[in-house]
């Protein structure tokens, strides 16, 4: 399968932040969630992907075009929206559609009309009268009607109230189901990513901690609750991402979980009470904490 995004050994250094040795591939037709806390490097990675900033080293290929040199050719087939993107507030959506259409000969006017109705947007109303949710939907309309092969969305749901967020996610999920598009979707909200993505990439402190299929990834993690008395040092040999003791109750969050590990836990004198699958958010927090502990 052809990769629509291929980042190879990307490094970018700023005064207080370094994007370090980023290797990322997105196969065609896949939806990838890029997850990280604020300041993890998601936006920097996406700006490099859009040819807006140049990496200090490494190569960037988007839809087979080397960036930043071929950024115009690549951007003709890429729909990009970011949380900090605003439309011209004194102009209406019709003006924006006419403007964007000028850059994209393949602009699909019928699809744009369909999205206008679906998103319940008034094309003659000035953008300044739109709610934040409507502005996000207007931005999505402007990029989806270009019929891009690749969508890059940088925190599109940030700042939305729960209702608007749910509406945007539902619409986005519908659209993504309908289309055979590749999508890179960044967020610090794991629920959004879990809802939309096929694969996930965890970014923390400028480094990729994990990047794989979301189902396989979640399946590798377990939260194990046990009771009894054991040596924390002995339990640490199991290399849990997280180990917490509360009286005689122990909780272990384990990456690369194997059923044989339960025997090892029992061998330490503990009784296994519960083995649970973990949510993406729990895994994300455990992964970040584990990485932070290793740094220190």
């Amino acid at each position: 399968m052809q990769n629509v995004i291929q980042l190879t050994d990307i490094n970018k250094h700023y005064g207080h932040f370094t994007l370090e040795n980023i290797n990322l591939t997105l196969p065609a037709g896949e939806i990838m969630g890029l997850v990280g806390v604020n300041g993890a490097g998601k936006s920097t990675t996406i700006r490099i992907l859009m040819g807006l900033i140049e990496a200090d080293s490494g190569t960037v290929d988007v839809l087979g075009h080397r960036l930043p040199d071929a950024q115009v050719t690549a951007k003709r087939q890429v729909g990009f929206a970011s949380e900090d993107m605003r439309l011209y507030k004194y102009q209406n959506l019709t003006w924006h559609m006419d403007f964007v259409q000028g850059f994209y000969p393949e602009w699909d006017a019928d699809y744009a009309q369909m999205l206008l109705q679906k998103f319940r947007l008034n094309p003659t109303q000035a953008i300044k009268g739109f709610s934040h949710g409507q502005r996000v939907k207007a931005s999505l309309l402007l990029l989806l009607a270009r019929r891009p092969r690749l969508l890059i969305l940088d925190e599109p749901t940030t700042g939305l109230d729960p209702v608007a967020r749910s509406e945007v996610l539902e619409e986005l999920a519908d659209i993504l189901r309908d289309e055979n598009r590749s999508v890179l979707f960044s967020s610090h909200n794991t629920h959004d990513v879990e809802q939309l993505s096929d694969s996930i990439t965890f970014l923390h402190d400028g480094r990729i901690l994990a990047s794989e299929d979301i189902e396989c990834f979640v399946n590798k993690w377990r939260s194990v609750r046990c009771t009894g008395h054991a040596s924390p040092t002995a339990l640490a040999e199991l290399k849990p991402a997280h180990l917490r003791q509360n009286g005689s109750v122990w909780q272990l969050k384990i990456d690369n979980f194997q059923p044989s590990m339960l025997e090892a836990i029992k061998a330490q004198g503990l009784e296994v009470v519960e083995v649970m699958r973990m949510s993406l958010e729990e895994i994300f927090i455990a992964t970040v904490k584990k990485d932070t502990r290793h740094e220190h």
Partner: peptide, 14 residues
């Protein structure tokens, strides 16, 4: 300041 630059930069413009 109005953050309309990212909108323009998302278009095929160098």
């Amino acid at each position: 300041k109005d953050q309309t630059t990212p909108f323009i930069l998302s278009l095929p413009v160098q």
